[in-house]
């Protein structure tokens, strides 16, 4: 029996090879196979060189050793990492300067992405209910604002928040400042770091930093939420309505459970994006409250010029991002499974 099965299998395999061989003339096969493999190999080489090697280089350089007054040399020196977490004097003393920077990086990114999602979610939900042409028009608007460079956005917010023109000037002109002074709110704002004795002051402040970051990723949030929200089966909502659910109940019992995982995934992606925010922080956060990207820049191009230490900070940032990217991939895979 098993011999028979083997024989029939072999006959079949033989048959199939014969099929494949005669499907195209052999010469043609060789010719095209090589043309195609040349293209794919070239592309693979480009990808390895330009796409992957920079990331590996960052990791490699991060173990390098800085020579005082000169450049740096290759080494296997984990002290750069120790410096990020516990300071250069460790183990004799512990400086948490860079650990704090990491902390600010995370805090700004978490707050910024949460605020962005909170406003983007209802917006996108309403958007997905519009007609297709209206959606397309809104999407053009969202994409245009999404592609605005961080530089331009910071410029706009800077004008809006600056003391000479913008909101503080508006407050003064309309008498809000006077009113704040009389009611004592100005003193409260001053305690929060949002005012000086004469007027409100939004720059520099952590609030300005976080709000600008939220602004920065809001269009991304809409774009990322758009896919899952616009794929919700409308008849499901209608079914819930016929069973007596109001809009809020529909949102709570149908929409949110369906899109919970994509929303988490979006949150993680926004968070990762904000980890790397540079211009916003240099502009709106005071030096004591600045983040890793700023000190990475300082180390690599700026004043301190210590490439290995900059690279080590970049690796820390990268690993943080990596953890969250994997989490979001895992979530999206989970969502796909649920969807089936």
């Amino acid at each position: 029996m098993s011999d028979l099965a083997t024989a029939s299998y072999l006959a079949q395999a033989d048959n199939e090879t014969r099929l494949n061989k005669t499907l195209r003339p052999p010469f043609d096969v060789v010719h095209r196979f090589s043309a195609q493999s040349i293209i794919m190999t070239t592309i693979a080489a480009i990808l390895l060189f330009v796409f992957l090697s920079p990331i590996l280089l960052v990791v490699a350089v991060s173990f390098g050793e800085k020579i005082e007054g000169a450049s740096w040399v290759w080494a296997f020196d984990p002290s750069n990492y120790a410096r990020v977490f516990v300071g250069i004097g460790w183990p004799d003393e512990i400086t948490l300067l860079y650990a704090y920077k990491l902390g600010y990086t995370l805090a700004y990114a978490v707050l910024g992405s949460l605020i962005a999602i909170a406003f983007a979610f209802p917006f996108t939900y309403f958007l997905s209910q519009c007609s297709r042409p209206v959606q397309a028009a809104w999407l053009v608007f969202i994409l245009a604002s999404l592609s605005m460079s961080e530089v331009f956005i910071v410029m706009g917010w800077d004008i809006m928040l600056s003391n000479r023109s913008g909101l503080p000037a508006l407050f003064k002109a309309t008498g809000v400042t006077e009113w704040l002074k009389e009611t004592g709110w100005l003193a409260v704002l001053k305690d929060w770091g949002l005012a000086n004795p004469r007027n409100v002051k939004f720059k520099t402040s952590q609030m300005a930093t976080v709000l600008t970051m939220a602004y920065l990723v809001w269009p991304y949030a809409v774009i990322l939420l758009y896919a899952p929200l616009s794929r919700i089966d409308r008849s499901m909502i209608e079914a819930a309505r016929t069973m007596g659910a109001g809009s809020f109940t529909v949102m709570r019992t149908v929409i949110v459970p369906v899109v919970r995982i994509p929303v988490m995934g979006t949150l993680l992606l926004l968070f990762v994006y904000l980890l790397g925010a540079y211009v916003t922080v240099t502009y709106f956060a005071e030096p004591a409250h600045q983040t890793l990207p700023v000190s990475i820049y300082e180390a690599i191009r700026g004043a301190t010029l210590n490439a290995p230490f900059g690279a080590a900070q970049a690796v820390v940032l990268l690993s943080t991002a990596g953890v969250f990217i994997f989490a979001s991939l895992w979530l999206s895979r989970l969502a796909e499974k649920r969807g089936r």
């Binding site: 920079p54 960052v58 790397g276 820049y297 690599i300 191009r301 970049a314 690796v315 990268l318």
Partner: peptide, 12 residues
Amino acid sequence: LPPIVFGVGLSF
């Protein structure tokens, strides 16, 4: 990835 990390890598 955070663009700054990739930028650092490319500059290396």
